[in-house]
């Protein structure tokens, strides 16, 4: 298990035998006023502890729905979702969630936004504060502890949201297009940082993204989904070294192979099936 920065292992190995996330033949149907919509169909997936898995697909293919299933914010119409071998029924506390919008409370400073997690969970104050300081140092927020969200740039806000999601050392981190609203340059910086943070914390990550490059640079495996009703088109293993320098990784033949394959799948997807 990877640990670093003096941060404790993120999960108890006694409880977490086997897969971190298991999705078994899941279907999700939504009922709107006019029609029934099948968002996901025949989705099966297994994510190992400590793995970084990216999910890519066209808009509306149910990528975000997949994360909501894992977090228990949504129940499947049929099929099973398990987190660390336990069936997911109702919202799970043992996850961290990052949305596209930082969703920060504007009346709280960066530090107090991060500590919201601790307050809600009634974690011991002293420890939570130390942990928050560690995370802020790790994500480059030092010096901005007392800044309010409107005083922070988009990238900085998203760092705060990431710290908040990591405060309670969740074994699984769910990220729903976390960098989608950032400019390209900030996004690349955030990718490098996320990769480093993941290596330091050893958390299992499920990342939904629109960016193929982001998916391949960050993930161990990339799940490519078909348009609605969403299902897994193919799972692409990324055989890049663990140590990934941004520019060098992008220049690797394996990077070109993986991104090329994903592009083919997404481009060919509408007619396929």
């Amino acid at each position: 298990m990877r640990t670093g920065n003096g941060i404790a292992p993120p999960y108890d190995p006694e409880v977490t035998t086997g897969a971190a996330v298991e999705i078994d033949d899941v279907e999700v149907r939504f009922r709107t006023r006019k029609q029934d919509v099948t968002a996901l169909r025949e989705v099966s997936l297994r994510v190992e502890p400590g793995e970084f898995v990216a999910i890519v697909g066209a808009s509306g293919c149910g990528k975000s729905t997949l994360l909501k299933l894992v977090s228990g914010l949504l129940s499947p119409s049929s099929g099973r979702v398990r987190l660390h071998g336990q069936d997911v029924r109702g919202p799970r506390r043992d996850i961290g969630y990052v949305f596209q919008r930082a969703a920060l409370l504007e009346w709280r400073t960066a530090r107090r936004n991060i500590l919201l997690q601790a307050e809600m969970r009634r974690m011991p104050k002293e420890g939570a504060r130390e942990r928050a300081d560690e995370l802020m140092a790790m994500t480059g927020l030092t010096g901005f502890e007392d800044a309010y969200p409107h005083e922070l740039s988009g990238g900085m806000q998203q760092r705060v949201a990431l710290c908040r999601a990591l405060l309670h050392q969740p074994p699984v981190l769910l990220m729903d297009e976390p960098f989608g609203a950032l400019d390209a340059l900030t996004r690349e910086q955030m990718n490098v940082e996320l990769r480093r943070i993941w290596r330091e914390t050893g958390t299992t990550v499920l990342l939904v993204t629109h960016s193929i490059a982001e998916a391949v640079y960050l993930a161990d495996r990339v799940i490519v989904m078909t348009p609605r009703p969403g299902t897994v088109a193919e799972i692409i293993p990324v055989a890049l070294p663990a140590e990934r320098k941004y520019g060098e990784t992008m220049a690797e033949p394996e990077f070109a192979r993986a991104t090329g394959r994903i592009r083919d799948l997404l481009g060919a997807a509408p007619g396929a099936e």
């Binding site: 228990g72 914010l73 996850i95 949305f99 969703a103 997690q117 809600m120």
Partner: peptide, 18 residues
Amino acid sequence: IDPEMLQLSSTMGAGTGQ
């Protein structure tokens, strides 16, 4: 209130009062 904020709150295990 931002619905995502409420979802976030429920993943934090927060009760209605909190």
